[in-house]
Design a protein around this nucleic acid. Structure first.
Length: 356
DNA sequence: AACCAGGGCAACCGCATACAG
DNA sequence: CCTGTATGCGGTTGCCCTGGT
């Protein structure tokens, strides 16, 4: 049995919206809020279906939308979140508060996907196309762990996105907004926009800081809003069982032994990845420097964050016109850095999670 | 100047999910 | 719990613009 259409399409206008239609929709929502989208067109005097009105509002007319060119940081955020979340544009959009999922999706499909492909990175898997190098010895194990972590984070971010949607719904239902014009100031200030984040990695590194480690990250290049504080720490995954050469090993703890409160808060909805208990935590200073890999357990290592992001940024820019440079040995480092940057991004999510 | 091809983006379609009765 | 409806989401389409020939 077929699904009934969302609205009676006979006699309803389709295609591009006219300024008059925009004005009507804005005026109605300003006065009454959107309420039921299905009922809105008739009340607002529009010959459109409710779905079309909702899309027009959410993708174009909403006052808290930033339009125009994507910044480099936004590009990085999209790429990294896409690596974690895949084509979950709505979830990605929650981390770019002033961008719509549709806009991000379009930007990905028309710009970023091609750029990654030019860099030799598969835009679907976010792995180097020549992935054979990763299967050498322990490298495959590391890659598997990273993938595992990414999958786990993906689930967590989805849960976050759901919470954000719920809170947005509550906000939107409290309309009417105070709209001023088709291009007004945001009704929701940027400071209220940062996505909530119950971030395992963040809680983790914060807890480490509480144990005596100085994990303040001085060089996060990511920002989520004009008013959001900089990220608190960068976390880096490095397979290692030994001491941390060239770094400062502040404390090593087994997760989740020292974070029962965090674990208790999470386990209702998420299970911990099986390999997670094997990861230990350490802190190192200064910029990324390639180290030989060690066998055994894994360290989660804190570093200052600028180097990779700068490098990645450079690559993005330089590769927009051609292939990647560097020898094969760079592939693995690049891949590792790539995933590290993704985890760093997650870690630098704003701290005001309603779940915390 | 005219035509064509490709890119970019707004909008639509249909499935998935949430929710109310 | 079941069913129908509303809304959200991701994939896709099609129009418009721009640059090349």
């Amino acid at each position: 049995m077929g699904r009934t259409p969302c609205c009676d399409k006979v006699g309803l206008k389709r295609g591009p919206w006219t300024p008059e239609e925009d004005k009507k929709l804005l005026a109605y929502i300003e006065l009454h809020g959107h309420g039921s989208w299905r009922a809105l067109p008739a009340k607002a005097g529009l010959q459109r279906c409710g779905k079309s009105c909702r899309l027009r509002w959410t993708n174009y007319l909403r006052p808290d939308i930033k339009r125009g060119k994507f910044s480099l940081q936004e590009e990085q955020t999209i790429i990294q979140l896409h690596a974690l979340l895949g084509n979950r544009w709505s979830a990605i959009a929650t981390h770019l508060p002033k961008r719509t999922d549709n806009e991000i999706k379009n930007y990905w499909n028309t710009h970023l996907k091609k750029r990654l492909a030019n860099m030799g990175i598969d835009p679907v898997t976010h792995k180097p196309k020549n992935d054979a190098l990763l299967s050498i010895d322990g490298h495959s194990k590391n890659a598997a762990n990273l993938t595992h972590m990414a999958q786990w984070e993906s689930a967590r971010l989805e849960a976050e996105a759901r919470l954000v949607r719920q809170s947005k719904l509550l906000r939107s239902n409290s309309l009417p907004h105070k709209l001023t014009s088709p291009a007004p100031a945001p009704a929701v200030p940027a400071s209220a926009s940062p996505p909530p984040c119950l971030d395992m990695l963040k809680a983790w590194s914060d807890s480490i800081a509480g144990l005596g480690g100085d994990l303040e990250s001085p060089t996060s290049t990511l920002s989520y809003s004009d008013n959001a504080p900089p990220s608190t720490a960068f976390v880096e995954f490095v397979p290692s069982s030994g001491s941390c050469d060239g770094g400062v090993l502040e404390k090593e703890e087994q997760f989740p032994t020292h974070f029962p409160e965090f674990k208790n808060g999470m386990e209702d909805t998420l299970s911990f990845p099986s390999g997670l208990q094997d990861w230990t935590v350490s802190a190192v200073d200064d910029r990324w420097t390639p180290e030989p890999f060690r066998s055994g357990g894994h360290e989660i290592t804190h570093v200052n964050g600028g180097s990779f992001m700068e490098k990645f940024t450079d690559q993005l820019v330089s590769n927009s016109s051609g292939g990647r440079s560097g020898g094969d040995s760079d592939y693995y480092e690049d891949n590792k850095n790539y995933w590290n940057s993704i985890l760093n991004l997650v870690n630098s999510s704003p701290p005001d999670s309603p779940m915390l």
